[in-house]
C-alpha cells in the first residue's frame, strides 16, 4: 500500500493548527513524500502541526527520522508537532526508540488540537 496524505486547517483554543492525515505505509520508499509535505507546510508558514497516524499501517525508522526532522523545523519557528496514534504496534516503535519522550502523542485529533503549547 502506498502512502496517502491530506491536510486541513483547524482552529483550536490555542490557535490555528494544521492537521496532516497520513495513511498507508511510511517506509524508506514513501517517507520522502511525507518529508516533502512537512517541509512545504513549514515553508508556507504552518508551524503548529498535528500528524494524525490512525490510518498508518506500517512505520519504520525512516518515518521516525522524517517526524523528528519535522519537529526540528517547527521548533525553529517556536512551533509544535503533535502526533495522534492509538495503535499499539505503531506506539511500540516510538517507545523502543525513546521518542515517546520527544513527541506529544494524543488519542484523538480533537485532543491534540486543544492541547496548549
Amino acid at each position: 500500500m502506498d502512502l496517502s496524505l491530506s491536510t486541513r486547517n483547524v482552529s483550536g483554543p490555542s490557535g490555528d493548527r494544521t492537521v496532516v492525515e497520513v495513511g498507508g505505509e511510511i517506509d524508506v520508499y514513501t517517507a520522502p513524500k511525507l518529508r516533502e509535505q512537512l517541509v512545504e507546510l513549514v515553508n508556507d508558514g504552518s508551524y503548529h502541526l498535528v500528524v494524525d497516524m490512525e490510518g498508518v499501517d506500517f512505520l519504520d525508522s525512516t518515518g521516525l527520522g522524517v517526524l523528528v526532522g519535522g519537529l526540528k523545523r517547527v521548533r525553529a519557528h517556536e512551533g509544535s508537532l503533535r502526533l495522534v496514534c492509538n495503535q499499539e504496534r505503531i506506539l511500540k516503535i516510538f517507545r523502543i526508540t525513546g521518542l515517546t519522550k520527544v513527541f506529544p502523542i494524543h488519542t484523538s485529533v480533537e485532543e491534540a488540537v486543544a492541547a496548549e503549547d
Binding site: V28, A31, R35, D60, S61, T62, L64, G65, V66, V68, G69, L71, K72, R75, I93, R95, I96, T97, G98, L99, K101, V102
Partner: peptide
C-alpha cells in the same frame, strides 16, 4: 531505548537512519 532523547541530537534523515534502524 534511548534514556534521554534530545530532538536536537536525534538522527534525522538521511544521515542517522542507519543508527536508528539498528536501534529499532
Amino acid at each position: 531505548a534511548a534514556t534521554h532523547p534530545d530532538p536536537e541530537r536525534l538522527p534525522e534523515e538521511p544521515s542517522g537512519e542507519d543508527e536508528m534502524g539498528l536501534a529499532v
